[in-house]
Amino acid sequence: MQEKENNDGIVFKPIFKVVLLIFTSFIIFGALAIIFYGPRQTQVDITEIDPELLENGVHVRTGLIEADGLQTVITNCTTCHSSKLIIQNRMGEEQWNATIRWMQKTQGLWPLGENQKVIVDYLTKNYPVLEKGRRPPLTDIDWYPLEGK
């Protein structure tokens, strides 16, 4: 290989120039990639700032209704499962107690002691059984005939 000398007397081999060019390219393209595709500052999740934030009568982080016993439910129930599991179930006192007994027997739920009454009272008040039935009949409808083939 031929060696070339620059004005300062430093000797550069052509392979060194190629390596230097590749290294410089990695630095430049890496910096550009970070600038254009790097981490973006996203909108801050308000629950990260205040995990106990209540808004319009609802606990923001869990979606549970604000009422007596809310913190007891959060502490004892959302430790193991999502609050959505609570919200989607609507039961009476007997059914909530049976569900708690089932969780204690099969899912490893600890004895709740006095907290069980607080939890069940909260759940029956805020997530009671919904009365289901037929929808009301349709009224004031502008019917029109369908034309056949």
Rank of each mutant, 00 (worst) to 15 (best):
T42F: 01
I46E: 15
A33H: 11
N56G: 11
Q43N: 07
Q41F: 04
I74G: 10
D45S: 09
A33Q: 09
H59L: 02
Q43H: 03
Q71R: 15
T75K: 13
I49T: 12
R61K: 15
Q41C: 01
I74K: 12
L64Q: 12
T47V: 12
I46K: 14
T72L: 03
Y37N: 13
N56R: 13
T62D: 02
Q71W: 09
D68F: 02
V58D: 04
V44N: 07
L70R: 05
I34M: 07
N56C: 03
T75G: 08
G63R: 07
I65T: 15
Y37Q: 12
L70V: 06
V60Q: 02
Y37F: 10
Q41T: 07
V73H: 04
E48Y: 07
P39Q: 09
I46Y: 11
T62V: 02
G63H: 04
D45N: 15
E48G: 06
L53I: 10
Q71P: 10
T62E: 03
R40P: 03
T72V: 15
V44K: 14
Q41P: 03
L64N: 14
T62P: 01
N56Q: 14
D45A: 07
E55R: 12
Y37W: 06
I65L: 06
Q41R: 04
G57Q: 05
G57K: 04
A67H: 07
A33V: 04
I74V: 15
R61C: 02
I65Y: 07
I74N: 11
G38D: 00
R40S: 13
G57E: 02
Q71T: 09
G63I: 03
E48S: 09
A67C: 01
T42M: 02
G57T: 03
I74Q: 14
I74T: 15
H59V: 08
D68Y: 06
D50G: 06
R40G: 10
V58C: 05
H59Q: 09
G63D: 08
N56F: 06
R61I: 03
E55C: 03
F36C: 08
Y37I: 06
T42C: 00
A33K: 11
T62F: 01
I46M: 04
V73T: 13
F36W: 14
T47E: 10
E52A: 13
G57L: 01
I35M: 07
T72H: 09
I74R: 12
R40T: 15
E55L: 04
E52T: 15
E55P: 00
I46V: 13
E55N: 11
A33E: 11
Q41I: 05
I34G: 14
G38W: 00
A33F: 08
E55F: 08
V44L: 05
T75H: 10
F36Q: 10
T47I: 07
I65W: 02
L64G: 11
I74A: 14
I49S: 10
G69V: 01
E66D: 15
F36N: 14
T42Y: 03
H59T: 06
I35V: 12
V58I: 15
D68L: 03
A33C: 04
T75P: 01
Y37L: 06
V60C: 00
E52G: 14
T42A: 05
I65P: 00
D68Q: 10
R61Y: 07
I49V: 13
R40Y: 08
R40K: 15
I74W: 07
